[in-house]
Design a protein around this nucleic acid. Sequence first.
DNA 1: ATCGAATGCACAATCGTTTGAGCATTATAA
DNA 2: TTATAATGCTCAAACGATTGTGCATTCGAT
Lengths: 337, 337
Amino acid sequence: MTLQAIASRLGVSVTTVSRVLNGRARQYRISEKTEQAVLAVADKHHYAPNHLARSLRINKTFTLGLVIPDISNPFFAGLARHVEGEARGVGYAVLLCDSEENTAIELESLRLLQGRKVDGIIICPVGRRGEHLERLYRQGLPLVVVDRYFPRRKLPYVTSDNFGGAFSAVTYLIEKGHRRIACIQGIPDSASNRDRVAGYQKALDEHGLLAESCLVGDHFGERNGYIQTKLLLQRTVRPTAVFAAGNLITLGCLQALAEEGLRVPEDMSIISFDDQPYFAFLATPLTSVAQRYAAMGEIAVQRLLNQIDTANGQAPEGIVLPTEFRERGSVKILRES
Amino acid sequence: MTLQAIASRLGVSVTTVSRVLNGRARQYRISEKTEQAVLAVADKHHYAPNHLARSLRINKTFTLGLVIPDISNPFFAGLARHVEGEARGVGYAVLLCDSEENTAIELESLRLLQGRKVDGIIICPVGRRGEHLERLYRQGLPLVVVDRYFPRRKLPYVTSDNFGGAFSAVTYLIEKGHRRIACIQGIPDSASNRDRVAGYQKALDEHGLLAESCLVGDHFGERNGYIQTKLLLQRTVRPTAVFAAGNLITLGCLQALAEEGLRVPEDMSIISFDDQPYFAFLATPLTSVAQRYAAMGEIAVQRLLNQIDTANGQAPEGIVLPTEFRERGSVKILRES
DNA sequence: ATCGAATGCACAATCGTTTGAGCATTATAA
DNA sequence: TTATAATGCTCAAACGATTGTGCATTCGAT
C-alpha cells in the first residue's frame, strides 16, 4: 500500500494523501470530506509509509547506530537495553553492531551505519585512537562516546568515574591490610581501563605501595581473567588480593581460583569493577564497584538527540557518572586500619 | 558524495558510474580508461552509496529485524550476539527491538521493522497468540521464531528441547530422592515455558508424583523468582527442591533463599533451566540445563536467509536443538535410587 | 565502398515519499 | 458587476540510486 494506491483509489493526488496522513490537512486546506475519505482508506488497508522513501526525501532516518564491543557482556547488554528503550520512546530505531573488540570490525560498522544514513551514533569504541571518530564528529555526524572515551579528542562522552571507583576499591583493600594487590586490567588502550588502572596506582601510591604494583592482563574477557589469575598463582610471592577491571575478568578469575582449589576470600580477596546482579549470590558475595547503566544509556541518547536537533550547537564536553562501592564478602580482613 | 557528483566531475553519466562501481563495467562495455577514472574519483572522495536510495530502488535493504523480550537477560543477549555476528558475516545489518515482554511494544516494533522494509525478522515473541506473526509470514515476510514458538501456527522456528531438558532435570531430582518439587515457571503463555512445565509434569507423572505437583510463577524475570520463592517458603509443607524455568528466575530464587538464611543445597535444592557462565561459581555451583546459544542464533539467521533468497520455497518446519544437563552441586541427595 | 558487428556510453523511467508553487473555482466585498 | 480573497486541490521536482533500451561511432570483412 502506497500513497499512489490510496490516491488513485480516491481520485485525488498523492500530495493530498500525503498531507492528510501527515496531519497537515488543515494547514493545506484539504476539505474535511477528503480528509476523512483518505483516512478511511488508509487505515482500512493498514497503510504504513515506506520509511526508506521518506528518509531519502527528508534526509532523516529516525535511526541511531549503536556500536559495542560485546553484546554478551552484561555491562554492554545493560547499556544497550537502556539505549534502545530511550530511543524507542522518542521514535527512533536502533541499528546494533557488535565490534567484537576489533578495530577493523568497528570501522566496517561505522561505514555500514553511515551508508544507512543513521541520524547519530552511540559507540563504545575499541582502540586507542579516536581519530576516525573525531573526524566523523567534525564532519557533522552526531556522535556520543560511551564508557571508553578519548581524553584528547573533542568528542562528547559519558562514562563512569572509573578513576574514583577504582581508587576507593583499592584504598579499601589497603585499609583491610592488603599490601600485595594485583590488578587484572582490561584492554590497555581503552580510557576506561586506563582510568581504573590509574585509580589503582594512585591508591597504592598514597600508601607508599607503588613498588608493590602488579599490573597484568590485556582484555575485558573472561579468558584474560582466567589466564592472568593462573599466572599470578604461579608466582613465588602471590598477591593477597585482586582488583579485577571488569565483570568478565572477575568471572575468569573465579574460575581459575576454583580450579586451583582456592577460596574467596580466605585464600584470595577480590574486588570487581562493574557489579552484576548475581554477584550477591556467588560462593562469596563479591565486593564491587557498581556503574549506573540506566543513567549512562539515557544520558547518551539525550545528548545524541540534542546534537541531532540543534545542529551541533554545543561544546563536546564529557559527563562522568559516579560509581557506587558495594561492600560484600570477598575481601579478607588482614588488619583493620 | 553521490553518483551524480562523481559523474559530473568526470563528464560521464550517472549510469556509467553506477555500473563501474557495481563491478559491471565489463558487462556493459565501459572502457578500461573510464572505469579507472571513476574508481579513482570514487575512492579519492570515499564514495559510499546511499543505502536508502539503493534499497528503495532494488527493493531490498540487507537489514534484519531482531525482536527480543529483554536484551539484558543473558540468554537473549547471547542469542543477539550470534544473530548479529552471523548476519554481519553475510552483509546484513540488524535492527534491534526490545519488546520488554509486552505485546503492545512487540506489535509496535513489528510495524517499525516493516516500515523500514527489513528483509526478514527474527523474533522471540511474547504472548500466547502467534496470529499476527503467521499473518506476516503468509504475506511473504521472511520470519523465524526463536525460543518461543507457536505449536499450531505454520511458522518456521528454532528452539531448545525444552520438554526434554526439563524432563531430565526433574527426573534427576526425583532420582535423588526428592518428592516435593516446586516449579517456578516463566510466562505461562510462552511455548518454551509450557514445554518446560510439561517436562516437569511428565517426570512427576512417571513416578506417580503428579499429585505433588506445585507450579507457581508467571514471569521470566528475577522478581518472579524472588517472590515465588518467598511464598513457597511460607508454606506449611515446603518443597525440598525447586526447578526454575529460566536463569533470572534462578537468580531471584537464590536471592530469596539467601535472605531467609537458607543454604543450597542443604535447605533447598535447585536446578535451573538455562545455564550461565557464572553458575559454576555461585555459593553452590548450580546444576542446570544448558541451551545452545550459538547454534540457535546461527540457525535462525540461516533459515531466514533461506527464505529471503528462495522466495519462501520451503515448509515452515521447526528445529529443536538438544539441551545439555550440567550436573554441579545444587541438588541434595536425599536418597539415591 | 558497404554492410554488419562490436564498442562505449547516455536516456529516462522507476522506487515512494515530501514540498514549494500554482491553478481553478467559488465566495465575499465594494 | 468586478476585483479580491478564500477554498481545495494538483503539478512537478527532488532525494540517490538501478536498469532496460537505444544511439552513435569505429572496426573488420567482403
